[in-house]
Amino acid sequence: MAKIEIYTTPTCPYCHAAKSLLNEKGAEFDEITVLDPSLREAMTQRANGRRTVPQIFIDDAHIGGYDDIAALDRRGGLDPLLAQ
């Protein structure tokens, strides 16, 4: 199974939606809460300057935020990534 990391904050509705989508797929993921400024800075560097949450990585590939992963799923591209 793929290694999935998702950077979130507790009150972000898009974070909840992304986690829900991954849960519906039966995917296990590591959640990194970025309330600490150093964690958010690490996320920003890793996500090519993107500061918004969620930021999602599958096998170290940057997928993007919720809109990005939802679009990937609609195109049929998410399931093959999760199955790796």
Rank of each mutant, 00 (worst) to 15 (best):
A2R: 06
I4Q: 04
I4P: 00
I6P: 12
T8M: 03
T8H: 03
T9Y: 08
T9E: 01
P10I: 13
P10K: 14
T11R: 11
T11W: 14
C12I: 15
Y14H: 02
Y14W: 07
C15F: 08
H16D: 01
A17H: 01
A17R: 10
S20G: 12
S20K: 15
L21R: 03
E24D: 14
E24A: 12
K25H: 13
F29I: 11
E31H: 08
T33D: 15
L39C: 06
R40P: 11
M43H: 07
T44C: 01
Q45I: 10
A47V: 04
G49M: 01
G49Q: 03
R50Y: 04
R50C: 10
R50W: 02
V53Q: 02
V53M: 06
F57P: 05
F57Q: 07
I58C: 08
I58E: 06
I58R: 02
A61G: 06
A61N: 10
A61Q: 14
H62R: 09
G65I: 07
G65P: 06
Y66P: 12
D68M: 10
R74F: 00
R74N: 07
G77K: 13
G77F: 14
G77M: 10
L78V: 02
P80E: 08
P80K: 05
L81Q: 05
A83H: 13
A83Q: 14
Q84W: 00
